[in-house]
Design a protein around this nucleic acid. Sequence first.
DNA 1: CCCCCCCC
Length: 600
Amino acid sequence: MTLIQSLTRGAITRIMQGEYILNPVVQILNIDRVNPTKPDEEQYRLIISDGEYHCYAMLDIQLNQLHHYGLLSENTIVCLDKYTISMAGKKGFGNNQSIIFRLILNELTALNSGDQVQTKIGEPVTYENADTANSASTAPVLRGPEERKQSNNNYNSNDRTLKTKCNALTIPIASLSPFQKKWFIKARVVGKTRKYPYRGGRYFSMNLKDKSGEIRVTAYKEQCDKFYDLIVADNVYFFSNCHLKLANKQYSLKSDYEMSFTGETMVQLCDDEDNVGVPEIKFDLIPLSQVTNMENNESVDTIGICKEVGELQTVTSRTTNKELKKRELTLVDASNDPIVLVLWNNEAINFDGQVKSVILVKGSRIKEYLGHKNLNVGSGSILKINPDTPEAHKLREWFDNGGGNNISTMVSARTGGGSFSTDWLTLKDAYLRNLGSGEKPDYFQCKAVVYIVKQDNAFYKACPQADCNKKVMDEGNGHYRCERCNAAYPNFKYFLKVDIHIGDCTFNRRAICFGQTGEQLLKHTTQEIVEALENDPARAQKIFSDVKFSSHIFKLRCMNTFYEGTVRNMLYVQSINPLNIKEYNGRLIKELIEMTNGTA
DNA sequence: CCCCCCCC
């Protein structure tokens, strides 16, 4: 004799009120095809009963086969292994408004065939005002605690079957809705911001992604503190008991809803075998050379070899006055255009890669400064050092075979527009090419020797504002007027403007070292230099003459200036880098080979 | 409940 499974009485009411029930057992009262006249839209609609109520449910088209095999005939008893409920629309107005839900059966197991059962169990009635027209049923809008009562949850207990339970209750992100209260999602953290302060606390947010979609979730205050370090970008977790709300369309393009953590929120790490079916992060890698063609603030995925690792630096934010840590890496790839990648704060402090490491970044932000662009690893970016990917191995092989050897020697083939920090030119070529005659300044670098350093007017009285170095007018009454700020100050600061002459084997040019580059050239602080020039001529003489005939790699900004009716083409020193003879000779040899078509 | 992604 066959055991007929009993139905899960009350299941339909609970499902329609947003509860996720594990494996409810229901009976199929009817199955028919939607749109029977359209051959390519084969979809089935069922009426299911829990013995108390019945309602419509749509069969996931993936399960059509079950019906073809005759497994879903009238009176069949099935277990709903997985179902989703979505909002199909609204009905009525104001207080009479109700939500139309659509119940979709995604996975089910037939327990007793229709033939075995033979009859309808119980006297089920239509659930509420079941919508008959369009394969949906309705439920009242959930209001107040009465309707939102929760059943016991024991996710936080040390349940050994927790994982199994998580998996069983997992629904796709795309089917999340505020009307379904009990669910798990299994998702990869694809972006995680830093902690941001806001009135009343701190928050961070991240995007969660599974194969069905993506949703943003934000953790505030206690939840921010509790989960921030626990959640690592790129890991896969089960999430449950988050609060869902309609997303602000202005900011959210990925999903209709977004979530926030609550006191009840549970996050459970998925181990590798659970990750199956959760897609890996996709990197849309672009060649580094392409960055220069992209817009400021655009976000890109890049991979490159770390050719240089800069020192940890401390800078002060102009806007917040806060101290920031930063570290610059120089990345190269086969596109032969080195680019600087800037790491900030913890990422800068804890960076444990080195020269030759492969650096993969998702979502680095392009920043433009003085005509050239670099990449910033910001919050929301994902940085990987020596990832185990085909691209990474290929890049490493290229580099190990000498791919990056002459990379700093590459002269960019681009013409027009601004030139780039990597362009090497002789002083004569820079002159012959009319660099700096366009609207925007041009940039180039060259090896040159310093042969005149002028002591006269090597500094001036400048606006005391940190972000303004404009020369001030001494008003003679103890006030100093800054034209740029349009303000008078009781004080000023000294600012360097060191006039130098530099030369390479082709040409001599005058160039100006402002501020920090002046300090760098003279190897003393502004204060020391001013002090010497004003009070200690011998010392000043030594500081200035020590620099004479030293060679450096100069990065120069070239632009036309208009002064008293005449145009002057000026060079401003952007940075001074030590001359590495070996590297520089390598560059010259490469250039010779190119000039002689490889016959040299 | 945020939605600024940092520096010269």
